[in-house]
Amino acid sequence: MRIISLCPSNTELLEYLGLTHLLVGVDDFSDWPEAIAGLPRLGPDLSINMDLVEELQPDMVLASLSVPGMEKNVVALQQREIPHIVLNPQSLKDIEEDLIKTAEVLGEKERGLAAARQFRSRIENVKQQSRNTSKSPTLYWEWWPKPIFTPGKINWLTEISEAAGAVNIFQDVDMASIMADWEDVLSRKPDYICLAWVGVRKAKVQKNVVKKRPGFEKLNYPSDDHILILEEELYCRPSPRLLDGLEKLYNIIHK
Protein backbone atom coordinates (compact mmCIF):
# COMPACT_ATOMS: atom_id res chain seq x y z
CA MET A 1 0.00 0.00 0.00
CA ARG A 2 0.96 3.64 -0.52
CA ILE A 3 0.49 5.62 2.69
CA ILE A 4 0.74 9.34 3.42
CA SER A 5 0.96 10.86 6.91
CA LEU A 6 -0.08 14.45 7.52
CA CYS A 7 1.39 14.98 11.00
CA PRO A 8 4.31 13.75 13.16
CA SER A 9 2.22 11.71 15.61
CA ASN A 10 0.69 9.70 12.76
CA THR A 11 4.11 9.08 11.24
CA GLU A 12 5.39 7.87 14.60
CA LEU A 13 2.36 5.64 15.10
CA LEU A 14 3.10 3.98 11.77
CA GLU A 15 6.67 3.35 12.89
CA TYR A 16 5.39 1.71 16.09
CA LEU A 17 3.35 -0.61 13.87
CA GLY A 18 6.46 -1.45 11.85
CA LEU A 19 4.90 -0.07 8.66
CA THR A 20 7.08 2.97 7.93
CA HIS A 21 8.21 1.32 4.67
CA LEU A 22 4.71 1.92 3.27
CA LEU A 23 5.04 5.72 3.52
CA VAL A 24 5.35 7.64 0.23
CA GLY A 25 5.01 11.17 1.64
CA VAL A 26 4.85 13.07 4.95
CA ASP A 27 4.22 16.57 6.31
CA ASP A 28 7.13 18.98 6.85
CA PHE A 29 7.21 18.52 10.64
CA SER A 30 7.56 14.72 10.71
CA ASP A 31 11.14 14.19 11.88
CA TRP A 32 11.22 10.60 13.15
CA PRO A 33 12.21 7.89 12.37
CA GLU A 34 15.31 8.57 10.26
CA ALA A 35 13.97 6.28 7.55
CA ILE A 36 11.56 9.02 6.39
CA ALA A 37 14.32 11.56 5.71
CA GLY A 38 14.21 11.15 1.94
CA LEU A 39 10.45 11.10 1.49
CA PRO A 40 8.54 13.84 -0.39
CA ARG A 41 7.45 16.66 1.92
CA LEU A 42 3.88 17.88 1.56
CA GLY A 43 4.00 21.14 3.51
CA PRO A 44 3.42 22.09 7.17
CA ASP A 45 0.53 20.35 8.88
CA LEU A 46 -1.77 23.40 8.58
CA SER A 47 -0.92 24.05 4.92
CA ILE A 48 -0.72 20.64 3.26
CA ASN A 49 -0.29 20.77 -0.53
CA MET A 50 -3.22 18.61 -1.61
CA ASP A 51 -2.13 18.67 -5.24
CA LEU A 52 1.06 16.87 -4.20
CA VAL A 53 -0.93 14.46 -2.06
CA GLU A 54 -3.09 13.60 -5.05
CA GLU A 55 -0.07 13.21 -7.36
CA LEU A 56 1.39 10.58 -5.03
CA GLN A 57 -1.74 8.46 -5.54
CA PRO A 58 -2.03 7.20 -1.96
CA ASP A 59 -4.11 4.17 -1.04
CA MET A 60 -4.63 5.75 2.38
CA VAL A 61 -3.92 9.11 4.01
CA LEU A 62 -3.52 9.35 7.79
CA ALA A 63 -5.05 12.72 8.63
CA SER A 64 -5.33 14.36 12.04
CA LEU A 65 -7.26 16.85 14.13
CA SER A 66 -4.59 17.19 16.83
CA VAL A 67 -3.99 20.88 16.05
CA PRO A 68 -6.77 23.46 15.51
CA GLY A 69 -6.94 24.26 11.80
CA MET A 70 -6.31 20.76 10.52
CA GLU A 71 -9.99 20.44 9.69
CA LYS A 72 -9.36 21.97 6.28
CA ASN A 73 -7.09 19.05 5.39
CA VAL A 74 -9.88 16.62 6.13
CA VAL A 75 -12.36 18.68 4.10
CA ALA A 76 -9.94 18.76 1.14
CA LEU A 77 -9.43 14.99 1.31
CA GLN A 78 -13.20 14.51 1.29
CA GLN A 79 -13.70 16.88 -1.62
CA ARG A 80 -11.03 15.14 -3.70
CA GLU A 81 -12.32 11.72 -2.63
CA ILE A 82 -8.89 10.64 -1.44
CA PRO A 83 -9.09 7.58 0.89
CA HIS A 84 -8.28 8.64 4.45
CA ILE A 85 -8.82 8.13 8.14
CA VAL A 86 -8.73 10.83 10.81
CA LEU A 87 -6.90 10.32 14.11
CA ASN A 88 -7.36 12.63 17.08
CA PRO A 89 -6.10 10.88 20.24
CA GLN A 90 -6.51 12.73 23.53
CA SER A 91 -5.39 9.95 25.88
CA LEU A 92 -3.11 6.93 26.10
CA LYS A 93 -6.15 4.70 25.59
CA ASP A 94 -6.98 6.60 22.40
CA ILE A 95 -3.45 6.00 21.08
CA GLU A 96 -3.77 2.29 21.86
CA GLU A 97 -7.07 2.16 19.98
CA ASP A 98 -5.59 4.10 17.05
CA LEU A 99 -2.88 1.46 16.69
CA ILE A 100 -5.61 -1.13 16.18
CA LYS A 101 -7.75 1.10 13.97
CA THR A 102 -4.90 2.14 11.69
CA ALA A 103 -3.48 -1.35 11.29
CA GLU A 104 -6.91 -2.74 10.47
CA VAL A 105 -7.49 -0.13 7.77
CA LEU A 106 -4.12 -1.05 6.27
CA GLY A 107 -4.96 -4.75 6.24
CA GLU A 108 -2.68 -5.56 9.20
CA LYS A 109 -5.19 -6.30 11.97
CA GLU A 110 -3.01 -8.78 13.90
CA ARG A 111 -0.04 -6.42 13.78
CA GLY A 112 -2.23 -3.71 15.29
CA LEU A 113 -3.49 -5.94 18.09
CA ALA A 114 0.08 -7.00 18.91
CA ALA A 115 1.29 -3.38 18.93
CA ALA A 116 -1.58 -2.37 21.21
CA ARG A 117 -0.73 -5.18 23.64
CA GLN A 118 2.90 -4.10 23.71
CA PHE A 119 1.86 -0.46 24.22
CA ARG A 120 -0.37 -1.38 27.17
CA SER A 121 2.28 -3.69 28.63
CA ARG A 122 4.91 -0.94 28.68
CA ILE A 123 2.55 1.41 30.51
CA GLU A 124 1.65 -1.26 33.06
CA ASN A 125 5.31 -2.08 33.62
CA VAL A 126 6.08 1.52 34.64
CA LYS A 127 2.92 1.71 36.75
CA GLN A 128 3.99 -1.41 38.61
CA GLN A 129 7.39 0.10 39.36
CA SER A 130 5.71 3.32 40.50
CA ARG A 131 3.59 1.42 43.05
CA ASN A 132 6.81 0.39 44.77
CA THR A 133 8.09 3.94 45.23
CA SER A 134 7.72 5.82 48.50
CA LYS A 135 7.23 9.30 47.04
CA SER A 136 4.73 10.89 44.67
CA PRO A 137 6.30 14.16 43.45
CA THR A 138 4.19 16.96 42.02
CA LEU A 139 4.97 18.19 38.51
CA TYR A 140 4.38 21.48 36.74
CA TRP A 141 4.39 20.92 32.99
CA GLU A 142 5.09 23.91 30.78
CA TRP A 143 4.17 23.73 27.09
CA TRP A 144 4.86 27.37 26.36
CA PRO A 145 6.60 30.07 28.43
CA LYS A 146 4.88 33.33 27.45
CA PRO A 147 1.99 33.25 27.94
CA ILE A 148 2.26 30.15 30.08
CA PHE A 149 0.39 27.10 28.79
CA THR A 150 0.16 23.90 30.79
CA PRO A 151 -1.87 20.67 30.48
CA GLY A 152 -4.95 20.15 32.61
CA LYS A 153 -6.88 17.05 33.61
CA ILE A 154 -7.97 15.96 30.11
CA ASN A 155 -4.48 15.39 28.78
CA TRP A 156 -2.04 12.57 28.21
CA LEU A 157 0.60 14.32 30.33
CA THR A 158 -1.65 13.99 33.37
CA GLU A 159 -1.81 10.27 32.62
CA ILE A 160 1.95 10.11 32.03
CA SER A 161 2.53 11.84 35.37
CA GLU A 162 0.27 9.38 37.19
CA ALA A 163 1.80 6.34 35.50
CA ALA A 164 5.26 7.57 36.54
CA GLY A 165 4.14 7.82 40.16
CA ALA A 166 3.73 11.60 40.14
CA VAL A 167 0.97 14.22 40.04
CA ASN A 168 0.27 17.00 37.54
CA ILE A 169 -0.36 20.06 39.73
CA PHE A 170 -3.12 21.21 37.37
CA GLN A 171 -4.97 17.89 37.23
CA ASP A 172 -7.87 19.52 39.08
CA VAL A 173 -8.64 21.79 36.09
CA ASP A 174 -11.08 20.04 33.77
CA MET A 175 -9.44 21.17 30.54
CA ALA A 176 -6.89 19.80 28.06
CA SER A 177 -4.74 22.95 28.00
CA ILE A 178 -4.69 25.93 30.36
CA MET A 179 -3.29 29.42 30.02
CA ALA A 180 -1.91 29.59 33.55
CA ASP A 181 -0.74 32.36 35.82
CA TRP A 182 2.80 32.10 37.26
CA GLU A 183 1.53 33.08 40.72
CA ASP A 184 -0.86 30.14 40.54
CA VAL A 185 2.05 27.84 39.65
CA LEU A 186 4.03 29.11 42.65
CA SER A 187 1.08 28.63 44.99
CA ARG A 188 0.84 24.96 43.98
CA LYS A 189 4.53 24.41 44.93
CA PRO A 190 5.54 21.77 42.36
CA ASP A 191 8.42 19.47 43.26
CA TYR A 192 9.61 19.59 39.66
CA ILE A 193 9.19 21.96 36.74
CA CYS A 194 9.02 20.06 33.44
CA LEU A 195 9.82 22.24 30.43
CA ALA A 196 8.69 20.76 27.12
CA TRP A 197 7.99 23.71 24.84
CA VAL A 198 6.04 22.77 21.74
CA GLY A 199 8.17 22.97 18.61
CA VAL A 200 11.31 24.01 20.51
CA ARG A 201 14.28 21.66 20.59
CA LYS A 202 15.71 20.76 23.99
CA ALA A 203 19.03 22.49 23.28
CA LYS A 204 17.26 25.84 22.89
CA VAL A 205 15.37 25.72 26.19
CA GLN A 206 17.04 27.60 29.05
CA LYS A 207 16.37 27.10 32.77
CA ASN A 208 17.05 30.81 33.35
CA VAL A 209 13.76 31.69 31.68
CA VAL A 210 12.03 30.16 34.70
CA LYS A 211 14.59 31.12 37.33
CA LYS A 212 14.23 34.83 36.47
CA ARG A 213 10.48 34.88 37.07
CA PRO A 214 9.25 36.82 40.11
CA GLY A 215 9.05 34.66 43.23
CA PHE A 216 10.91 31.66 41.81
CA GLU A 217 12.98 31.51 44.99
CA LYS A 218 9.81 30.68 46.95
CA LEU A 219 10.00 27.16 45.55
CA ASN A 220 13.16 26.58 47.63
CA TYR A 221 14.70 24.11 45.22
CA PRO A 222 17.98 22.71 46.53
CA SER A 223 19.42 22.74 43.00
CA ASP A 224 18.62 23.34 39.33
CA ASP A 225 17.98 19.61 39.03
CA HIS A 226 14.36 20.30 39.92
CA ILE A 227 13.93 22.12 36.61
CA LEU A 228 13.76 19.43 33.94
CA ILE A 229 14.34 20.28 30.29
CA LEU A 230 12.60 17.52 28.36
CA GLU A 231 12.35 16.59 24.69
CA GLU A 232 9.11 18.05 23.40
CA GLU A 233 8.88 15.27 20.82
CA LEU A 234 8.55 12.73 23.65
CA TYR A 235 5.86 14.60 25.58
CA CYS A 236 3.94 16.99 23.31
CA ARG A 237 2.83 14.64 20.53
CA PRO A 238 0.00 12.12 20.97
CA SER A 239 2.01 9.20 19.63
CA PRO A 240 3.42 5.93 21.02
CA ARG A 241 6.71 7.76 21.68
CA LEU A 242 5.02 9.09 24.82
CA LEU A 243 6.05 5.74 26.32
CA ASP A 244 9.71 6.64 25.80
CA GLY A 245 8.95 9.88 27.60
CA LEU A 246 7.15 8.04 30.40
CA GLU A 247 10.03 5.65 31.02
CA LYS A 248 12.53 8.51 30.96
CA LEU A 249 10.44 10.61 33.37
CA TYR A 250 10.13 7.74 35.83
CA ASN A 251 13.91 7.27 35.89
CA ILE A 252 14.50 11.00 36.45
CA ILE A 253 12.06 11.60 39.31
CA HIS A 254 12.73 8.34 41.14
CA LYS A 255 16.51 8.19 40.76
Rank of each mutant, 00 (worst) to 15 (best):
E108G: 09
K93L: 13
E124D: 04
K109R: 13
K109I: 11
S91V: 09
R122M: 03
R122T: 02
L113F: 10
G112E: 11
K101M: 08
T102A: 03
E124A: 01
E110V: 15
R120F: 05
A115N: 07
A103Q: 12
R111P: 11
R122D: 00
R117G: 02
L113D: 05
R122W: 12
I100P: 02
A114V: 15
N125T: 14
E110C: 06
K109H: 08
I95K: 00
L113T: 14
D98L: 04
Q128G: 07
G112Q: 04
K101A: 12
E110Y: 04
A114W: 09
I100A: 07
D98W: 09
E96I: 00
K127F: 04
R120A: 11
F119E: 03
S130M: 04
L106Y: 06
E104D: 12
Q118E: 15
A103W: 08
A103I: 10
S121N: 09
E110T: 15
R122F: 10
G107Y: 09
E108A: 14
A116M: 10
R122E: 00
D94Q: 04
K101P: 03
I100D: 08
T102C: 02
D98N: 15
V126I: 14
L106P: 03
L113K: 13
R117H: 12
L113W: 06
K127D: 08
A114H: 11
I95M: 01
E104G: 01
E124S: 09
L113G: 05
L99Q: 07
D98V: 10
E124I: 00
K127L: 07
L99P: 08
E124Y: 01
T102D: 01
G107V: 10
E104M: 07
G112F: 13
R117W: 11
A114I: 14
K101Q: 05
Q128M: 07
E110W: 08
R122A: 02
E108M: 14
E124H: 04
K109S: 12
G107I: 11
L113R: 13
A116V: 05
L99V: 01
V105K: 10
A103E: 06
R117Y: 04
A114E: 13
L113H: 09
E96M: 13
V126L: 01
Q129C: 04
E124G: 02
R122H: 06
L106T: 05
E108L: 11
E108Q: 15
G112S: 06
K101R: 14
Q118H: 14
A103L: 08
L106Q: 04
V105F: 03
A116N: 04
K109Q: 15
E97G: 11
S121D: 13
I100R: 02
S121I: 12
L99C: 07
F119N: 11
L92Q: 01
